Simulated assay, not measured.
Amino acid sequence: MCRNIHQLHNFEPPATRDEIHAAALQYVRKVAGSTRPSQANQAAFDQAVATIAAATAALLDELTTAAPPKNREVEAAKARARAEKRYAS
């Protein structure tokens, strides 16, 4: 899985449409193998992003869990600590 796609489920506040769109964009870029499609492929690329974003939003709306929601700041701090450990010189 692409490292830039982050978990979006079970956060307080819930994932925004911008976060869902960013995840869909990263997914399409990964699958397509390019970050910027040619003009000939732009419409297909944009349609794929929109379709995946809609499917992701629907999935997040339907998922349920008994776990308490995660705090975004706490999870971001954990990720920074893991990165510091991983990339320490």
Score class of each variant (00 low, 15 high):
86 R>S: 12
11 F>K: 08
63 L>T: 12
36 R>K: 12
41 N>R: 03
54 A>R: 14
45 F>R: 04
74 V>E: 13
61 D>C: 09
1 M>E: 10
27 Y>I: 09
74 V>Y: 09
54 A>H: 12
49 V>T: 04
54 A>P: 04
83 A>M: 14
77 A>M: 06
78 K>L: 06
30 K>H: 07
73 E>G: 06
12 E>G: 04
45 F>H: 05
59 L>A: 12
23 A>N: 05
67 A>W: 02
8 L>H: 00
12 E>R: 05
26 Q>F: 03
70 K>W: 01
61 D>I: 08
15 A>Q: 10
57 A>F: 01
80 R>H: 13
20 I>T: 07
78 K>Q: 12
21 H>S: 14
77 A>W: 08
47 Q>C: 02
65 T>A: 00
48 A>Q: 09
69 P>Y: 02
81 A>E: 06
9 H>P: 03
16 T>F: 09
14 P>A: 14
36 R>S: 08
64 T>P: 07
62 E>N: 13
22 A>M: 09
84 E>K: 15
79 A>H: 13
88 A>K: 14
37 P>L: 08
29 R>G: 02
72 R>H: 13
82 R>W: 14
52 I>W: 03
63 L>P: 03
6 H>V: 06
40 A>K: 01
20 I>F: 07
28 V>Q: 08
68 P>T: 06
74 V>R: 00
37 P>E: 03
67 A>N: 10
78 K>F: 02
83 A>G: 11
72 R>L: 10
88 A>M: 00
79 A>E: 15
75 E>Q: 13
53 A>G: 10
78 K>V: 05
63 L>H: 00
60 L>R: 00
65 T>M: 01
68 P>D: 03
35 T>S: 05
68 P>S: 09
36 R>Q: 09
81 A>K: 12
14 P>K: 15
12 E>N: 15
1 M>H: 13
84 E>V: 12
10 N>E: 03
32 A>E: 07
16 T>D: 14
49 V>E: 09
71 N>T: 00
31 V>A: 06
63 L>E: 10
6 H>P: 07
10 N>M: 00
70 K>R: 15
45 F>C: 04
82 R>F: 13
85 K>Q: 15
34 S>P: 05
55 A>H: 09
76 A>V: 11
55 A>I: 06
21 H>A: 15
21 H>D: 14
34 S>M: 03
78 K>T: 07
43 A>C: 01
27 Y>A: 13
39 Q>L: 02
44 A>Q: 08
39 Q>M: 08
27 Y>P: 02
61 D>W: 00
15 A>G: 07
87 Y>A: 03
80 R>P: 10
38 S>Y: 01
25 L>C: 03
18 D>M: 08
3 R>P: 11
1 M>L: 12
17 R>A: 15
74 V>H: 08
42 Q>S: 10
55 A>W: 04
49 V>D: 07
38 S>I: 07
